[in-house]
């Protein structure tokens, strides 16, 4: 029981770290493409963010199982890139079909973002980090959830700031992606402030 308790505690720490101190977007720049292009409105950003949290949590967990019980016994670790991508694509496709069948309303809100997610580097990146950092099973669940939540937090904050930005005068060459990156830089600076919270 004690072992399980400390495992869960470790998973919670990993989750917290993934949200704040090692935010997947602001410290490793993963998922930048949708971050710069889908952050114009808070509502769409929230939809995409929710979809990322959901997909990330499940795909990192599935990939952990596949890596541990298929690739390691077969000594095919180098094959992980292809296997992870196939699992992610298949999972996204599956979820899309399920949502479409059982909840048309949710499909309208979330469904359009699902295909975008397959090409989101943050999803594959989280799985690769999970392998390199040698997380345990429970830690992986915590990490996947935390990484997704961190990404959602960042894109929501960005969307909120960008709607305000509509009224400000930004230099011509900096409009669009340029100013988004500068704001992201300032956000990353703020997130660095969390470093050491868990130390």
């Amino acid at each position: 029981m004690n072992g399980l308790g400390s495992e869960v505690w470790l998973a919670m720490v990993t989750c917290f770290a993934a949200i704040f101190t090692q935010n997947i977007l602001l410290t490793t720049f993963l998922g930048m493409c949708p971050f710069t292009s889908v952050s114009r409105e808070v509502k769409t950003a929230a939809g995409l963010g929710a979809a990322v949290v959901f997909v990330l949590t499940f795909t990192t967990t599935l990939n952990w199982l596949a890596y541990k019980y298929v690739l390691i016994p077969l000594e095919l670790e180098f094959f992980r890139f292809i296997l992870f991508i196939i699992i992610i694509a298949a999972f996204v496709q599956f979820v899309e079909m399920v949502i479409d069948r059982y909840s048309p309303k949710l499909y309208q809100n979330l469904g359009i973002f699902l295909p975008l997610i397959t090409v989101n580097c943050a999803i594959l990146g989280a799985s690769l980090f999970m392998v390199i950092r040698e997380y345990s099973f429970i830690q992986t669940i915590g990490y996947g959830f935390g990484a997704g939540l961190g990404w959602m937090l960042a894109i929501l904050a960005m969307a909120g700031i960008r709607t305000r930005l509509n009224e400000s005068r930004v230099p011509e060459g900096l409009r669009g992606p340029g100013i988004t990156l500068i704001i992201a830089g300032l956000m990353a600076l703020a997130f660095i402030g969390f470093t050491g919270v868990l130390g």
């Binding site: 602001l26 410290t27 490793t28 720049f29 230099p171 060459g173 900096l174 992606p177 340029g178 100013i179 990156l181 500068i182 992201a184 830089g185 300032l186 990353a188 600076l189 660095i192």
Partner: peptide, 15 residues
């Protein structure tokens, strides 16, 4: 550190 990459990239895009 990570924020530096954002600032550097934004400046280069601007330029």
């Amino acid at each position: 550190m990570p924020p530096g990459a954002f600032f550097a990239l934004a400046s280069i895009i601007w330029l």
